[in-house]
Write a protein that binds this DNA or RNA. Structure first.
Lengths: 228, 228
DNA sequence: TGACGCGTTGAATCAGCATTCATTACATCG
DNA sequence: CGATGTAATGAATGCTGATTCAACGCGTCA
């Protein structure tokens, strides 16, 4: 009878793969892309360097998996936030505010996955990540526009600009180091407001939308946990 | 009598230094940061690898010089555009539109100098470049705010967001490849409009400002030359 | 239990580039 | 024209970090 993998073994293998993935993610979140090195990843996952290659054929593939997982989590959160909203306009606002808040909490990781120096090999992955975020925004922008709530804009351009503004304003190296939680919340709201106004939503209304989006603090904390 | 450098020689040395600088800049503009390699730079400047080190102690210093020169050129252009404007609000608009237009023309170079993967060593330089651009925007935003033309905003945050929006919308990899000159001009105007609105300038007024900023085509072409 | 296959190990290998330096070519000067 | 100091050369060196692979150990099966 041919060799078969026990359930137990299958589980251990899966756990190990996850451990490697987590290790890589944690390193990225703590030290940025420069800290994502095969030996470091292996060490952190309590595994030998060669073992990593049994699970991921190359570093690029591993990083791809990390970014892919992050991408799925973030997109799901955005869609979820949008789905809870009563209409297209608040869905758009919720989407933006949610991204801003989450990006702020998982700042280093998001920056590593979108903006930081890295090998050329993995650049396409980061592009894909940005692409999907922008596409999500574009989708919401178009929906809100169709119901007549926005100035006419090129949704694609606007979505890119929104993404860039949030990333640069909140997670990039120019953004001030996160001090207190309230300060951070305020930054998130300010950024969201800017972005909503850029889409042609008048100031007063934009402020209303931002206020609506604010989640109760404990719920936000819970989300932050999940991101980390 | 001690050895002295003839004027002629001094000139040749300066020319060579400039050639090296130009070579590095051209490589960055054509192939991005990955193409900026010492041997390639040397070859393009018709010089041996070692020679580059007579002029720049390390690659980081050379890249620093490239970015510094770019930074000075761009900042000068922004200040110049602002100085021509009749008041703080149009100065702000001019500054934004000018950056947008120039970034669009020197797209690859600007992207290499601000957003693209690169060695960790030179990351601080890129940060400094972004920093000075953002500072220039912040300065104009504050001036315009003091004359009461803008919504209240955190100038620093707003400036970062503006920079991010323009970079992501116009020069980053998500931005559509530049087709025709008119298409590009339109993109520049659309991006400028978005950004002005984000600062709380109402749509109609923002459109007026954008229209004012449009330069006659030949003048823009001349500027583009200078950038390249 | 013994034979066998799969997963693991980690030191050795490989590759890409920046950087060095012994040598060569050239300028300056008496 | 030598003598001497300066600039240029480019093959060799060094470093960093991904990737490989022969030896090993553990789990599976008869």
């Amino acid at each position: 009878m041919p060799y078969r993998r026990t359930d137990n073994v299958v589980r251990r293998l899966a756990a190990r793969e996850q451990a490697i993935l987590d290790s890589a993610t944690a390193l990225a979140a703590e030290g940025g892309m420069t800290a994502v090195q095969m030996t470091a990843i292996a060490a952190r996952a309590s595994v030998a360097a060669g073992t990593v290659y049994r699970y991921f054929p190359s570093k690029a593939d591993l990083v791809a998996a990390v970014i892919d997982a992050l991408s799925r989590r973030e997109l799901a959160a955005l869609r979820d936030a949008a789905a809870r909203a009563p209409g297209p306009l608040s869905a758009l606002a919720a989407c933006i505010a949610t991204f801003a808040a989450r990006a702020c909490y998982a700042r280093r990781l998001i920056w590593a996955a979108t903006g930081e120096p890295a090998e050329a090999e993995i650049d396409p992955l980061r592009r894909a990540f940005r692409q999907s975020l922008a596409a999500e925004f574009a989708h919401r922008i178009e929906a809100a526009f169709r119901t007549g709530h926005l100035s006419e804009v090129d949704a694609h351009l606007a979505a890119s600009a929104v993404l860039g503004a949030l990333l640069e304003g909140l997670v990039g190296p120019l953004a001030p180091a996160a001090e207190s939680a309230p300060a951070q919340r305020q930054a998130v709201q300010a950024a969201t407001l800017l972005v909503l106004r850029s889409l042609g939503i008048v100031d007063a209304r934009a402020r209303g939308l931002v206020a609506q989006c604010a989640l109760p603090p404990n719920e936000r904390a819970a989300e932050a946990q999940h991101v980390a």
